[in-house]
Structure formats: structure tokens, C-alpha cells
Simulated assay, not measured.
Amino acid sequence: MTESSSEHAGTAVMEPGHGPMVRVSGLRRSFGSGPSAVHALRGVSFDIPRGELVALKGRSGSGKTTLLNLVGGLDEPDGGSITVDGTELAGLGEKGLLELRRDRIGFIFQSFGLIPILSAAENVGVPLRLRKAEPRAREERVALMLALVGLADHAAQRPGELSGGQQQRVAIARALANRPALLIADEPTGQLDAETGLAVMELLRAVVRSEGVTALVATHDAQLLQLADRVLELRDGEIVEG
């Protein structure tokens, strides 16, 4: 579509590096049908500017994970639109979504999601192997990421030999390995004690700044919410600015 035709159609065409990192408009998602249907999201709309760490809060079952899965291309909405780094997710197809998740989105989960038989360094290197990165470049990036999260001396240790906080640091390093434009974290401190959770959240904020990443982080911890640039609250399937 040419610039003139897009203007004529009344729609803005974003390209990577321009506009908000995330644009969500009129997003709807329900589970089930009929009277028993659960309406998790009811016309949710918001933008996330580039370089911000935005926290998403809401009661358990409020739809936070559903929203993160939709923004991350892990699920499809019933209606509305999602644009990530200039790319509208609708119509990408499974191959396009896979490439988007691999190349431009990093994920951090509450359960860490590390591979038990791999060392910390090998876990961090998984996304780079999937992209078929050159071995030397991969090793250098893995070493840099482990140093960034303070685990340079633990590269050879497996997840079972690390504390919960250390495992989540490895997960953060892995999520950043491919230089994603967007980082999505679902309750990243949910399995950690308060002190360790705060340290991990402060680390996450620091690496977001140093790597120039935009982050959307779901958390229920009021102390952690204070570290965000902005807070969005999910209430009754709708977004309320914090």
C-alpha cells in the first residue's frame, strides 16, 4: 500500500522503529459460549511507548495472562487488533507469529521455564541456536547476558544447582539473548520471596534500560509496581490507568 492510498483509507501504517511499541485496540477474548462464557477481555485498548516498563496489575483471574498471551502472539483474540513493533498480528499466520516471537519478543515466566539438563549458559544460548547464530557470536552474547544479570561465575551450573532468584536471572538473560524489541513477563517474581523478588524486579528494570527494551510485566506486588514507568489495571475485562 502506498502512502497516499493508506492516507486515503484513513489508516496509519507503522514500521519497525516508529510509533508505539505496542498498540492494542478494542481487544476482546472470551472462553466458552452461552450463559457460562467467561469474558476475559472486553474491548481493551492501550498503547505502550518504546523504552517504557509498563506493569499490568489485576486480581487473580482478571485476564492478565490472557492479555500477555495475546500481545505475545501465543493466542488469538475474538476481536480487536494488536500491533507489535509496527507489525499487526492479525493475518500473520503461524509461521509469521513464530518468527515474531523468535526475533522480536522475549518471554519470562513465573515458573522460570529453564531446561534442567542444560547449564545456565546453554539455557541462555537456546534462542540463539534457534536463530542459527554463529557459534562465536553466540558464546559472546551468552557471556555478556550472564554478566549483565550477575551470573558470570555460574555459567556452568544447571538450574537445580541455582537458587530461585538465580534461575529467574538466567531466564531474564535468555529472554534478552536475541535482542528483542519487546519483553513480556508474567508474574516473574511470583515464586520468589519478597527481598529476592524486589532484587529481580530492579534488575529487570536496569537491563530494560541498558538493552533499550520495552517491557510489559504482570505483577500483583505493590512494591514492584512502584518500579514501573506506568501501571495498567485490568478490572472486569477492561483497562483502567493506574
Rank of each mutant, 00 (worst) to 15 (best):
V207L: 06
A137C: 02
K64N: 06
R129N: 07
G113L: 12
T214F: 02
E76F: 01
P35W: 00
N69L: 09
M21R: 00
M201W: 04
A155F: 06
P16G: 06
S163Y: 08
L232P: 14
L128M: 14
R138N: 02
R230G: 13
A137N: 03
G91Y: 11
I82N: 05
D78I: 01
Q110V: 04
A156Y: 03
P135Q: 06
P135M: 06
G165Q: 00
S4H: 05
G10V: 11
L198F: 04
E3N: 13
R42I: 09
R138D: 01
P180S: 01
E211W: 03
R102W: 07
L216Y: 11
V22R: 04
V124P: 11
K132N: 11
D236W: 06
V71A: 05
L192N: 04
E15T: 14
R209Y: 05
P127E: 01
F46N: 11
M1S: 15
S5H: 03
L198I: 04
R174Y: 09
G17M: 08
H18Q: 14
T219F: 11
V170G: 12
D153G: 12
L192G: 03
Q168L: 06
A90S: 14
G58Q: 00
A55E: 08
K95F: 03
G237C: 01
L144G: 00
F46W: 11
R29G: 09
V71W: 08
E238V: 14
V24R: 00
E52D: 10
P35H: 01
F107E: 10
R174G: 06
A222V: 15
A143C: 10
P135L: 07
R59P: 07
T189N: 00
R131P: 05
I82K: 05
R50E: 08
A12E: 14
G63E: 05
K64D: 07
Q157K: 15
R102E: 07
A90Y: 02
T219N: 12
R28Y: 11
Q167I: 08
R174S: 07
G160P: 09
S33R: 10
L224N: 13
F31T: 07
S210L: 08
A218E: 07
G91V: 13
I239N: 05
V149R: 12
A90L: 02
G150H: 09
R131H: 09
Q110N: 00
H8M: 04
K95P: 00
L203I: 05
L89I: 02
R129W: 06
M145T: 03
A12T: 15
F46D: 13
V24D: 00
T65R: 03
I108M: 01
K132W: 08
G106D: 04
F109A: 11
L203S: 03
G125Y: 04
L192A: 06
L227M: 14
P20L: 04
V213Q: 03
L68S: 07
H154F: 05
E238A: 14
G63V: 11
R59A: 15
R230K: 13
S25A: 13
A143N: 12
R174D: 03
S81P: 00
A206G: 13
V38A: 10
L225A: 15
A199T: 15
A173G: 12
M1E: 11
L182W: 12
I82H: 04
A137E: 15
G165D: 02
L203A: 01
A55M: 09
E3A: 15
E241T: 14
G51H: 12
G19Q: 10
D153C: 05
R136Q: 15
N69G: 14
